[in-house]
Design a protein around this nucleic acid. Structure first.
Lengths: 327, 327
DNA sequence: TTGTAGGCGTTATCAT
DNA sequence: ATGATAACGCCTACAA
């Protein structure tokens, strides 16, 4: 292994000078800079991250924690985090919080012993306990979830997004719009979306109709069944996740209903799943990759508390269309 | 921050003793062990990973690198890696190799400066250059790709898996089976699968028919078009990725063909995508999560070179069935 | 502009 | 069984 002393010897200077050159600190002639640079190249020297971190009391590590590592939404945010981190010279450490954030403290602890520069939590709210184990030096930010004003967070305005989306369906002439919501455990994202839907429906004088799944694919067909039982003449279903939306598209067709001619379907999130059904799922897009990138920047800018809002966007694919005329 | 000296003072012993207790080395009475253990608990002491790594010249970090972080297949392997690593007390660092592995050396370099305990490469072959920048201490293993015998790898037997799958379709009475292959850049996985298909077809006296996509969803419809043009009486399509398989299921139905009554469709990998279409995609399953776990174990067992094979498995869902009788 | 020296928190060697 | 001490590789006052 090449150390800073090797380079120093090779270039005929002191370790301190090498350090200065490598870190771009002032204090050397351009001649020595060249000699050092060359020595570095020749020996293939790279500063040891551990030693550097130990000395500076800070590492260039960023943690990224998600409830489930293989989740489609989380993957996209992680991708953004990774890209931004790398661009800024940081590395990212991956962890899993578990569905109820139960593993988060353990990972935060580890991250702390690495003197991580910060942590982004995906789809998981920051708790006082997490804040405590993270210690005073390590900033936390949660993404894709609205987390009050107490801790930093980065998300779309879920209430408004659901409101806009419902208005869009109303604008297409739909009145009997069923909402397929997620379960209560992900309350922080579901509650505002439900409110948005409710508000739009009420304003339009339409009758709200709500059933719950658990945001995953398999939970949607039974919930759709309950929705159709309560109103067989439904002309639109608004699912609060793309997986549920995709399942609804498939299930409706299995039941002999055409999408979107008989029933329109709208999803939420704009994960890749939305494009894996036919007709492709119209959906409320969250800028997931971008959220990951922005989160990293906020983290490193000592992004202080408060909730930041990113813009949502409605993407029309093939699963939505004008309401079927009631004869 | 609590250091080992704080604990030592608190327990009335020397730092060396604390270290011994914490690391389970011999050399202390049970009385002092208890005092130290209690002091550790009271002060919430956790050894600093950086300092420890610096001293021991080894860190408990494992790298996991994938061509694209948000890829479904890679996500599942990563999930397995993360789980196994955590269980063994290791942390995982995430990186992106890029489609042609072009970024791999950079990440390997970083990992080396972290003195990582090893690196698992997903869907990326190890090259001599990578091996070089990884240095002599850091083991590498590639997963979900067959990598000759030169470097460690962990994958299914792609040739055999495709052979078995094709035989399965033949067994259902299909003779006109089109193969939807991936592009040439992922040659290491595609070539053997193509060979397996070809061998099964030839053995059965059937006529092979092959078109290429790029493994992603959007590439499948046009390729399917070409397949149908060359043989409109096709009764089965074997797609070498689930995304392409899902697209084929959707596209066939759009074209008015029933799945599986008119045409059977078989996918490959068993990612979540396979379950996001209707009928759900039958597919050749790779044990992705398991591969991630096993990779970690091999890495830490100083897993020497050579290709390790994990078993594949055919999963029948709704997209395959007996061949349509030719009247 | 450049070099010397001390210490970050830990483990390992050598005394006691 | 326990403690003092020296490194691991780096950065950064402080001196020169």
């Amino acid at each position: 292994m090449t150390t800073i002393r090797d380079v120093a010897r090779h270039a005929g200077v002191s370790p301190a000078t090498v350090s200065r050159v490598v870190n771009g600190m002032p204090g050397y002639s351009s001649a020595t800079r060249d000699r050092v640079t060359q020595a570095v190249a020749e020996l293939g020297y790279e500063p040891d991250t551990l030693a550097r971190g130990l000395k500076t009391m800070q590492s260039t590590m960023i943690g990224v924690l998600a409830p489930v590592v293989s989740d489609a939404l989380a993957s996209q945010v992680m991708s953004g985090v990774e890209r931004a981190a790398r661009e800024l010279g940081y590395s990212v450490m991956l962890g899993r919080t578990g569905p109820g954030s139960e593993f988060a403290p353990g990972y935060l602890h580890t991250l702390r012993t690495y003197r991580a520069a910060g942590v982004v939590l995906i789809s998981a709210a920051i708790t006082a306990d997490m804040r405590r184990v993270a210690g005073p030096k390590m900033p936390l930010i949660s993404v894709a979830i609205r987390d009050g004003k107490q801790f930093p967070s980065l998300a779309i305005d879920d209430e408004r997004a659901a409101y806009d989306a419902t208005r869009h369906l109303l604008g297409l002439g739909h009145e009997r719009i069923g909402l397929l919501a997620g379960d209560a455990t992900s309350l922080l994202v579901n509650a505002p979306r439900e409110r948005g839907y409710l508000r739009a429906m009420t304003e339009a004088g339409a009758t709200p109709l709500l059933e719950r799944g658990n945001s995953l694919y398999d939970s949607a067909p039974p919930a759709l069944g309950r929705l159709l039982e309560r109103d067989p003449a439904l002309t639109a279903v608004f699912a609060l996740s793309d997986e549920m939306g995709a399942a609804v598209v498939n299930e409706l067709q299995r039941l002999g209903r055409r999408v979107p001619d008989d029933v329109s379907v709208l999803g939420f999130d704009d994960t890749r799943t939305a494009q894996h059904v036919h007709p492709a799922l119209s959906t409320v897009a969250q800028p997931l990759e971008r959220m990951g990138e922005v989160a990293v920047h906020h983290l490193l800018d000592a992004g202080n508390g408060g909730a930041r809002i990113l813009p949502h966007r409605l993407i029309e694919r093939g699963s939505t269309g004008p309401a079927r005329r009631t004869p």
